[in-house]
Write a protein that binds this DNA or RNA. Structure first.
Lengths: 72, 72
DNA sequence: ACTCTATGTCAAGTATTTTTTACATCAAAA
DNA sequence: TTTTGATGTAAAAAATACTTGACATAGAGT
């Protein structure tokens, strides 16, 4: 329920990486395509583990994929 | 089941922050003490959201609290 | 000895993330 | 026009993160 203060640029990063498809990204990080879709749409924020795996695939620091906006 | 490739120095950071207690940290990041205990013991890796909140409290980048070790 | 405070354990419940399966749409290509 | 690949939607089930509450221990202070 709580809207998460975390956003991401997975979609941008995909396109910047040779237009990698959702399917392909999903496979590389070991989740299903649904999970990628949901994340790109901000439906929920992933586990830290998954977040790290994604950053690793794109070869960038985690904070370049996900950004956090504190409440106050 | 899935061992997570993520470790953390929450405990160290707590002590470096005026020996902040588990209770106090829990309160500040909005979870229960159980959650802090479990994380310190590596029982599971937190949500990205919570990870960011913890880093924010300690005023350090996320990757200074949590570190990731790729599989291969 | 008694009382606090901080840490830890265990178990059962709730919430959120992730999977599975199935179907819809659109653009590109054959 | 038919097929194919990429994206999207939906909904139930499975897995994992997180809560609640109760009790155990050890150390510091009174």
């Amino acid at each position: 329920m709580g809207k998460s203060n975390v956003s991401n640029n997975i979609r941008k990063l995909r396109f910047n990486h040779d237009e990698m498809t959702q399917q392909e990204l999903a496979k590389q990080v070991g989740v299903t395509r649904q999970t990628i879709i949901a994340m790109e749409q901000g439906k929920y924020s992933p586990s830290l583990d998954l977040a790290f795996r994604i950053a690793h695939i794109f070869a960038v620091p985690l904070e370049e994929v996900f950004s956090y906006e504190p409440e106050d």
